[in-house]
Amino acid sequence: MIRWDVIEGNLPLIASKLLEHLALTAVAVGIGLAISALAAYFIRGRKRLVGPVTGTFSLLYTIPSLALLAFLVPVTHLSFLTAEIALVSCTLFILTRNILAGLAAVPTDALEAADAMGYGRFGRLWHVELPLALPLIMAGIRIATVTTLGLVMVTALIGFGGLGQVMLRGYNFRNDTLVLVGFVLTVALGLAADLGLGWLGRAVTPWSRARGT
C-alpha cells in the first residue's frame, strides 16, 4: 500500500509542509501566549473582568475550528491571518486559564513571606509568583501546542494546513501513500510535542518533583 517512490518524489513537498505545520503552530502558540499573559495580568484580581474574559475565550474555544474559519474567510479571506486568528482563538482559553490557575495556586504563605521580606510588586511577580505558577503554565503550553498541531490540519481547507495539505492532496488524488505519510507524521509530531514539552516542563521545575528526604 505504501509506495516508497511516491514518498521519494514528494519529499520536498512533505518537508515544506512539515515546516509550515510547525511554523503555523509556533506562531499561534506564541501569539496566544502573549495575549493570554497580558489578559491574565489585567484581569487578575479584578473579579468583574475574569468572568467575561474567560467566558469569551471559552466560547471561542467551543466554536468548532472549521466554523471559525468559515466566519473569518469572508472578512479576512484565504489568508495566513485567517488561519492564525482561528488557531490563536483556540489557544487563548487553555493558556489564560492555566496562567490564572497557576498564579492562584501559589501558596499564600510564600506570598506573605515575599512581601514581608521586602519584595516589590514586580520583584514578587517575577521571582516568586511566575516560577511557582510555571508547572501549570507549562502544562497549558503543552496542551495548547498539541491541540494546535491538530487544528492546523483543518486550515488545509483554506490553502494552509501543513501536513493536513499533504493528506488532503493524497485524498483528492486517491494517493493512499500521501494520506498515510501525512497521518503518521502528524501523529508523530503530536506525540513528540506532548512528550517533549512534558519533559521541558519537568526540566524547568526541578523543585516540583523534590519530595521526601
Binding site: A110, A114, A116, G118, W207
Partner: peptide
C-alpha cells in the same frame, strides 16, 4: 520595601519558596 528588608519575619506556615533551594531561600534578603 526597605523597612521590611530590615525586619526578620517568621510565620507558622514558614512560607519558604518551594521553587528555591534551602540555600537560596535563606539568602533571599
Amino acid at each position: 520595601t526597605d523597612l521590611r528588608r530590615s525586619i526578620g519575619y517568621v510565620i507558622q506556615q514558614v512560607g519558604l519558596f518551594p521553587h528555591q533551594t534551602i540555600g537560596e531561600n535563606v539568602a533571599t534578603v
